[in-house]
């Protein structure tokens, strides 16, 4: 048996945020818009404006169980954070964090029953640690992973909202959103950035092109038609050659943008596709910097650390949850 290494380690499952290879994705109808060959990366045009890299991360801080008359209910306390890194165009050299926010949720299955508090609060502790409030959020599935999935959905929603908001605030800017695009189609300059490739949009003989791509090069543009979702434009870009021990899809990312179902291809997408390889090549991480290199971009890594810092120390929070529940049990 010959195994190759999947850089997407099992240790950090990006549940749902990545290309999940689900039925709907696989059911997409792929329409090639250009000839099937590798396209070189063009230089970034002068006057390229701001680029926002949007990402989120989440953390289930405690799983809770609740005995109710109708049986056992799964719940959880979790936190998610979203934010963006603004990379300045000409004359604005410093990267800066923006839109950073974290939220705490008490994730409950089913409806919010009247006796339940609307929030779960950890009182302020000694040494200046503030109170932590988890807002109750019903609607999680009543199963062990239900709370986690609900939290994930919340985070994705927040990411998308942030991306839309940034796009609205700075019309010339390009927004790079982590993961595939979701929700309503929009005309804004928001680009989905898919790091791991589970779904194969290019199949059979077409797939061979993926192995042939050199760093910086891209595949032809594809239009992805779905039965229930808005159609999207997509293409693959190779950031780096895979190492001999890696799967040939390592170093490959897929970009996508909402595409109007009919009419002309949005001009900015075609333009971007020409120099996207150059741009992303600059942002790609190097193997020593990130286990998920090169796909996990440097600003994304920095953003993840900033969000983790904002979320606080998980062990400390877990202690406080323990203490709170202990006090309740004791009283």
């Amino acid at each position: 048996m010959a195994f190759l290494l999947d850089p997407w380690s099992a240790e950090r499952p990006q549940l749902g945020s990545e290309d999940s290879g689900d039925a709907e994705e696989q059911g997409a109808e792929v329409e090639l818009l250009e000839a099937l060959r590798a396209k070189p990366a063009e230089p970034i045009p002068a006057g390229f404006g701001d680029l926002y890299v949007v990402d989120g991360s989440r953390r289930l801080e405690a799983r809770l169980l609740e005995e109710r008359p109708d049986g056992l209910h799964f719940a959880g306390l979790g936190q998610f954070g979203v934010g963006a890194v603004r990379l300045g165009g000409e004359g604005k050299p410093a990267a800066e964090l923006t839109g950073l926010r974290t939220e705490r949720r008490l994730l409950l299955s089913g409806e919010l029953s009247s006796w339940q508090e609307r929030e779960f609060c950890l009182p302020a502790g000694p040494g200046g640690s503030g109170a932590c409030t988890y807002l109750a959020l019903p609607g999680a599935e009543n199963q062990p992973e239900g709370a986690s999935q609900k939290l994930q959905a919340e985070m994705l929603q927040a990411e998308m909202e942030l991306a839309e908001r940034l796009a609205e605030q700075s019309p010339g800017a390009l927004i790079l959103l982590d993961g595939p695009l979701r929700g309503q189609a929009s005309q804004r300059r928001v680009l989905g950035y898919v790091k791991s490739q589970r779904t194969q949009y290019l199949r059979g003989a077409q797939a061979a092109l993926l192995s042939e791509l050199q760093p910086g090069e891209r595949t032809p543009l594809m239009r992805l038609h779905y039965r229930y979702q808005a159609s999207r434009l997509s293409w693959y870009v190779r950031l780096a050659s895979p190492r001999p021990y890696q799967d040939p899809r390592s170093g490959l990312i897929r970009l996508e943008a909402f595409a109007p179902e009919t009419g002309e291809l949005a001009g900015w997408v075609r333009e971007l596709a020409s120099y996207g390889g150059t741009l992303l090549g600059k942002l790609a991480s190097r193997p020593h910097q990130d286990q998920r290199a090169p796909q996990n971009l440097l600003p994304t890594g920095a953003l993840e650390r900033a969000i983790a810092r904002r979320m606080g120390d998980a062990r400390l929070i877990y202690r406080r949850i323990q203490r709170r529940l202990f006090q309740e049990a004791a009283s």
Binding site: V85, L87, G88, K92, P93, A94, A95, E96, L97, K282, L283, H288, Q289, L298, P299, G301, A302, L303, R305, A306, R309
Partner: peptide, 19 residues
């Protein structure tokens, strides 16, 4: 603050990583 590697300094200066 917020960077891990010494070479990150160059990336912060060039505007790639916020720090």
């Amino acid at each position: 603050e917020g960077v891990h590697f010494e070479s990150d300094t160059a990336d912060v200066v060039s505007g790639l990583i916020p720090a």
